[in-house]
Simulated assay, not measured.
Amino acid sequence: MSNTPSVWQDIARKGLWQQNAGLVQLLGLCPVLAISNNVVNALALGLATTLVTALSSATVSSVRHWVPHTIRNPVFIMIIASLVTCVDLAMNAWLHELYLVLGIFIPLITTNCIVMARAEAFASRQPVREAAWDGAMMGLGLTGVLVALGALRELLGKGTLLAGADKLLGPAGQQLTLHLAGADYQFLLMLLPPGAFLGLALLIAGKNVLDARARQRAAAATYPAPDAEASPAP
């Protein structure tokens, strides 16, 4: 694969928008819907997934010539599981409170369809740098969806933003919490699983609207409307 800037931009565009794992491919919906009840949880899980996706894609790409085709998938899963274990232990050691909140969803990154799909569809066929970049962009695309959905649900459900930021950023994170509604405000629907489905549906609809407008602008630029006939001179 060529290393021209357009190639890197194309990979980034596909991972962040055109083939977004959460809004287009609809992969990894279990953590997206379960953890996205606030921004901090969503951001933490998204970054952990991004780290695993980037590192696993780079590792898979680096060993792809030495792995027989018949055992390729078990080897890929072993690589992913090893990286997830490292992330799980690191979060338990340094972000223990957040680790307790995320719970089983950190080990479940091993079975996340996004990680395995990129290892199989892209990393196993591309050089290391392109594979790592693709994994990072796919992970960041999912992280963006998680954060947007978490912000929507937290804002509508509790009237706050960045609640519990100290679990991720330490004591300084307490200053980042925004209270945008009264202390008694709560919209329980957005904090429960139905709210996750409704929020994700709104995000998907919003992306579809933006894509439709972009196609219309592109079509108008390619096929401009004919100029109106000049009025006859008096």
Rank of each mutant, 00 (worst) to 15 (best):
R129M: 10
C113R: 10
P5F: 01
P224K: 02
Q175A: 15
L43T: 15
A181V: 10
K158V: 10
G144A: 09
M1N: 14
H96K: 11
A181I: 12
A54S: 09
A136M: 13
A121R: 14
V84Y: 06
M78V: 15
N37L: 04
S36C: 05
L27M: 15
Q18A: 15
L98M: 13
A136D: 03
T160F: 02
Y99I: 05
L108C: 02
A132H: 09
N92F: 14
P107Q: 08
D10V: 09
V75E: 02
G150F: 00
A131Y: 00
A183L: 07
A219T: 04
L27W: 15
W133F: 14
H69I: 11
T50S: 13
R217G: 02
P224R: 04
A230W: 02
V75L: 01
S61W: 11
H179Y: 14
L16Q: 01
N92V: 06
G206S: 03
Q186F: 09
Y99V: 00
A233C: 08
Y185N: 07
W133N: 09
T53R: 00
G22E: 01
A214D: 08
A196P: 04
Q25V: 03
W94M: 14
P224H: 01
V7K: 05
T143F: 05
M1G: 15
N112Y: 02
E120D: 06
F76R: 07
L200F: 06
K158F: 01
Q25W: 13
V147R: 05
N73T: 09
L210V: 09
E130C: 00
A233Q: 09
M1D: 14
S124W: 07
V128C: 02
Y223P: 00
G164P: 12
L210K: 01
P31W: 00
R118T: 11
A34K: 04
Q174L: 12
E154A: 06
V209Q: 14
P5M: 04
P31H: 01
G157D: 07
P127K: 01
D184C: 05
K167Q: 11
S2K: 11
P224Q: 00
D227T: 06
V147Y: 01
G195I: 00
L200R: 06
P194Y: 03
T4F: 02
A201Q: 03
L146E: 13
N20V: 12
G22Q: 08
P31T: 02
S2M: 04
R213V: 13
D134A: 09
L140W: 04
S2A: 06
L33T: 06
S231K: 08
T85R: 10
V32M: 10
M78I: 11
L192I: 06
G164H: 02
T70N: 07
W17T: 08
I79A: 03
